[in-house]
Amino acid sequence: MSLNYMIPASKFKRYLPKDYVELVDYGPFGKKYSEVGVKNMGTYKELVEEHPMCSGCWMSYYIKIIFASLPNPEDTVTIGTAGCGRLAISQAAVPFIYGNYGDQNAMASGITRAFRLRFPDRQKDVITIAGDGGMMDIGFSMTMHAWFRREKFTTIMLDNEVYGNTGGQESGMSVEGAVLKMSPKGKNFGKMPAMQLAITAGCVYVVKMSPTNINKASKAIRRAIFAARNLGPTFIHVYTSCNIEYSIPTPDVFRDAKEKEKRSFCI
């Protein structure tokens, strides 16, 4: 049973550092969702706590929601790639694989098939979490082909509409006309239709959202994971603003997310 690797050897329980003992006692491993989950955040030790992302970053907020929504974290492996997301994801109490830039969905194809060989009767959830650049630009071919091949795992794209980690260059998901680094005269093509591409490629469950409502965000993630267990690939395209590159003051980050959801449309 996979929970064993999370239980300290009895003799060493009093020799482990505080944060590991708390993780075992108050963490979400092996607990029912009603006891933990997004509704009870704050009453148990979350999988992600300290991380080196910028203050006010909407992506780190969403990553906390991802890890709070995991159905069974003790059997979950996350795969990320270059970009801001991996800064927080690598600090989570869940195994994290980091390959080369953009190859997360190819790696996920490999490891999900390996898990089905080794654990035919057990459910191992694999989630790839990458930015818009990693998923739709450099990793486009691997993302699409993993979907065409019906690989069974969840893909979450943290769309901050910019290459944030490298200092604010234009990305495929930046809006048309956006003046950013490497698009000095404004981007001359529109936002790539990620949702339509996912549906065309054969995803069984696709969501596009701005995570302003925490329960709706968590429900989408859990549905995506459940559907990916035996139906096929699932995709979540979520708006997570880069308040640094788009210079959104931290207190306004939530208002900006609300606005992207409700009012402003791309010019």
Partner: peptide, 25 residues
């Protein structure tokens, strides 16, 4: 039509199988 909804308005697509699964779950 688009003006009312922002570009990140909530949109959800699911196959029929997925719908059945979610009902059960």
């Amino acid at each position: 039509k688009r003006k009312k909804k922002g570009r990140f308005a909530f949109e959800e697509f699911m196959t029929d199988e997925a719908k059945e699964l979610f009902k059960v779950v």
